[in-house]
C-alpha cells in the first residue's frame, strides 16, 4: 500500500476501524514517518475523548476486584534496582510486540533460521530453563538443557497451540526470575552452560537476548528496529566491557599486558579502558589500540548480528588487537 493510501487510514486506525490485515502496515508506516505518528497521537486523543462522553461509574465492587487481581498478578517484587528494571523493560517491550504480529508475520523467517513464531517459543524455552534452574520449573516438559534440543522439543509441543499459551509459560518464567532477582541472591544459573554466574550476568544476558530477538522479529517483518533506552544500552555495553577480558581468554585471544580504549558513540555511549587479559588492570595512556564504534553497532556485534568484516569501526593502533576484540566480543551470544 502506498504512503498516500496509508495516510488515508490514520483516522480509521485511531478509531480501531482498520481492516485487521491493514493494522500492521499502518504501524510500520507510523514507525517510519514521525509526522504521521504525531497525527495519530492527536487523533487517538480525540478518539479517547469521544469515549469519555460515555463515562459511567462501574459497580462499586469492581475496584476491590481489580486491586485483588493486581495483587494476584503481582509482577514479583518491585524492580527497585536497575538490572531488574532493565530485564523487565526488555521483556515488556518484547511482549507488546507480539499482539501486533499478523499470521504472515508469525510465519516470517528470522535471521537465525527460526520462524517468528518459533523464535518466541525458543525464548520461552530459554527463560523457563533458567526458571527451572532456580528450582521452580514452570513447564511439564522435561526438555533438558541442550539449547537446540530443548527449542526443538518446545516447538513440537506448542506446534498446534496458540501463541498465547507460549506467552503464559514465558511470563511465568519471567515472574520467577524477577522474584529470584529480589531475594538478594548474588549468583544464578545458566543451565545450558552448566554454570553459576553472577546475578548481573543472568539479568543482563536475558535482557540482551530478549532485545536482540525482538529486533530479529522486527527485521523479519519489516518493522523499524527499536534499541533499548540509552541508559539500558549503556548498562549492556558496560557489562560487555567488564566481561571482555574473560571473553578474550575463553576464545584464546587474550593479550596479557595490553590495554584497549573502546569508545562507543551515540546515546548511552561512553569510553572504557579495557585490559586484554583476565585478572589484569587496565594500563594507562597511551593504549595499544583504540576502537570507536556506534553503541548499537557494538551491541549488534556482541549479539552476533553483524560480522567483524561488516561492522563500522574506526581503529587507531594495533589492527590485530582490534580484530581479536571484535571476534571475542560476540561471546555474549553464547551466554
Amino acid at each position: 500500500m502506498s504512503d498516500d493510501a496509508l495516510r488515508e487510514l490514520l483516522a480509521a486506525y485511531a478509531l480501531n476501524a482498520c481492516e485487521p490485515n491493514e493494522v500492521a502496515q499502518v504501524e510500520r508506516y507510523l514507525a517510519r514517518d514521525p509526522e504521521a505518528a504525531a497525527e495519530v497521537a492527536q487523533l487517538s486523543t480525540a478518539a479517547a475523548w469521544i469515549g469519555a462522553t460515555e463515562a459511567l461509574t462501574p459497580p462499586a465492587e469492581l475496584r476491590a476486584s481489580v486491586l485483588a487481581a493486581a495483587r494476584a498478578h503481582h509482577r514479583g517484587p518491585a524492580p527497585d534496582d536497575d538490572l531488574t528494571r532493565l530485564y523487565r523493560t526488555e521483556t515488556d517491550r518484547f511482549e507488546t510486540l507480539i499482539p501486533t504480529l499478523e499470521s504472515d508475520d508469525l510465519a516470517a523467517m528470522t535471521a537465525n533460521g527460526l520462524s517468528v513464531r518459533d523464535l518466541v517459543i525458543h525464548l520461552a524455552a530459554m527463560e523457563s530453563m533458567i526458571s527451572a534452574g532456580l528450582g521452580a520449573p514452570v513447564s511439564n516438559l522435561d526438555a533438558g538443557t541442550d539449547v537446540d534440543q530443548r527449542t526443538a522439543m518446545f516447538i513440537e509441543a506448542y506446534a498446534l497451540r496458540p501463541i498465547e499459551d507460549v506467552l503464559v509459560l514465558w511470563r511465568e518464567a519471567i515472574a520467577r526470575i524477577t522474584e529470584w532477582a529480589a531475594t538478594g541472591a548474588t549468583t544464578g544459573p545458566l543451565p545450558w552452560l552448566g554454570i553459576e554466574v553472577g546475578r548481573d550476568t543472568v539479568l543482563i544476558s536475558r535482557a540482551f537476548e530478549t532485545w536482540i530477538h525482538a529486533d530479529d522479529i522486527r527485521r523479519a517483518t519489516g518493522r523499524q528496529l527499536e534499541p533499548p533506552s540509552p541508559a539500558h544500552l549503556h548498562c549492556m555495553a558496560d557489562f560487555s566491557m567488564r566481561s571482555l577480558p574473560t571473553w578474550l581468554d575463553v576464545s584464546g585471544r587474550s593479550h596479557p599486558g595490553c590495554t584497549a580504549r573502546v569508545v562507543l558513540t551515540g546515546a548511552g555511549g561512553g569510553s572504557w579502558l579495557v585490559p586484554l587479559a583476565p585478572r589484569e588492570s587496565a594500563g594507562g595512556e597511551p593504549v595499544d589500540v583504540v576502537l570507536e564504534v556506534d553503541i548499537v553497532e557494538w551491541c549488534h556485534r556482541i549479539g552476533e548480528r553483524v560480522t567483524t568484516d561488516a561492522i563500522a569501526v574506526r581503529v587507531a593502533g594495533d589492527d590485530a588487537l582490534a580484530t581479536d576484540i571484535l571476534e571475542a566480543a560476540s561471546a555474549l551470544a553464547t551466554l
Binding site: 460515555e54 463515562a55 459511567l56 462501574p58 475496584r63 486491586l67 493486581a70 495483587r71
Partner: peptide, 20 residues
C-alpha cells in the same frame, strides 16, 4: 509496584474506561 498508585489511577479513570 505501588498498589496505591493503581488505586489512584482507578479512581481517576475507572468511570471513563468502564463507560467506554
Amino acid at each position: 509496584a505501588d498498589e496505591a498508585a493503581l488505586g489512584e489511577c482507578y479512581d481517576q479513570y475507572a468511570s471513563f474506561v468502564y463507560g467506554l
